[in-house]
Amino acid sequence: MNSLTSYPEPSEPSAAAGDDLVSPSQAALPSDLTAIHHQLLTLLRAPGQEGAWVSLIDGVGRRIRALVERDADMALYLQVQSAQRVQDHYSSQHALFCAVVVDLCLHHLNVGDAERQSAALATLTMNLSMMELQNELIHRERTPTLDQRRVIDGHAQAGAQLLRQVGVQDPVWLEIVELHHTDPPPETGFAALSPTQRLASVVRRVDVFTAKMSSRRFRAGMPATLAARAACLGPDGRPDVVGSAVIKSLGMYPPGSYVKLASGEVAVVTRRGVKANEPVVASLVGRDGRPLAAATPRDTADRSHAVAGIVRPAEVRGPVPPVRVGVSDRL
């Protein structure tokens, strides 16, 4: 395994994209992520109740980053597909989704391994003090009560204090949690921020971006392109440093999202492409609106199969198991 600081960038797909056999290590990734989420959920529900809680959550962060290193596209595919469904354990699933994206963004920004680990741990625990409330709110249509709003507004500081109480001593981890909902002054550019403020800025932006992509009981999640427009673009319609890192790390159409092709077919994105607007896809629905007998790889660099638009997840009967589209050979 390569160093955690050297993720492979998206590569040019082969002529037989989607037909190659997937290695056992890739095939195991979905079940690995499920096991990681189960451990994360257990730890977040009972902070500090195990003597080695800090060490255990540190291990979860390292396992997530190792899986992203192994196959970032598969990790993204699974998290994007999961976010498109209303989840019983939204808070922990959201933390896991954020941790995957944060680490990819920090790799793009050339952040060192130690800082990336601290950022991963902060991302996993940023909503520790309001986990149950967060899970409750995604199933409710009405706005939070005054008391709930107080909890939401104070959860960053409360979370950092709770982490201190259970033995966290990493100052970068703690400061990111404290700052992850604090916007720096508008006139302060990214380069002028302290190193920890930069990390918090990435976590904050990814938090917003992934939340907009995630479905609630009374609100469908946004397609990635619309979420990016809302979370990553400035008033001038251009992404800033952090917004650009998010878009370049995930592509315009992240794995797991759905697109309409110039041919009229509907496809699911399976991997990022060399160009942000040319992802690797597999068509699911033909131009006549009927499901294809089998998912069919398409080359979006070919004008006849170029991405022509986005498709909202609610318009596709999903989720689409990775085995069906050649992302993995088994669940």
Rank of each mutant, 00 (worst) to 15 (best):
P313M: 00
L226D: 04
R205P: 00
T145M: 08
R164K: 15
D19C: 05
D147H: 10
K260R: 15
Q39S: 12
A301C: 12
M252D: 09
D183A: 10
S6R: 14
R298W: 12
R164H: 06
H37Y: 06
R317L: 14
R150L: 12
V60I: 15
D113T: 05
T5C: 04
A15Q: 11
M213P: 02
V86R: 11
L104I: 15
L292E: 00
A245V: 14
K275D: 05
G234A: 10
P321Y: 00
T42W: 04
A156K: 12
T182Y: 01
T300N: 06
A17W: 15
T296S: 11
S214W: 13
H305C: 09
H94W: 12
R238L: 14
R204Q: 08
L292Q: 02
G221E: 01
S118K: 08
N110F: 06
Y7R: 15
V281P: 12
Q197S: 08
E178V: 09
V22K: 15
L199A: 01
V166L: 02
F97C: 04
F209I: 04
S25M: 08
V311P: 06
Q148H: 03
T225E: 09
S263R: 10
L199N: 03
I57E: 02
Q49T: 04
G264W: 09
V54H: 01
L162C: 03
P24G: 03
A17I: 10
A262D: 13
T296I: 02
R217M: 09
R216D: 03
S92D: 11
I176E: 02
L29V: 14
A119C: 08
S14L: 15
A119S: 13
A158Q: 14
W173P: 08
V101S: 00
E265I: 12
T196W: 10
A46L: 04
G289N: 05
L133G: 08
T210K: 13
D71R: 04
S129Q: 05
H180N: 06
M252K: 08
A211H: 12
I138Q: 14
L261A: 10
V280L: 10
A293T: 09
D20P: 00
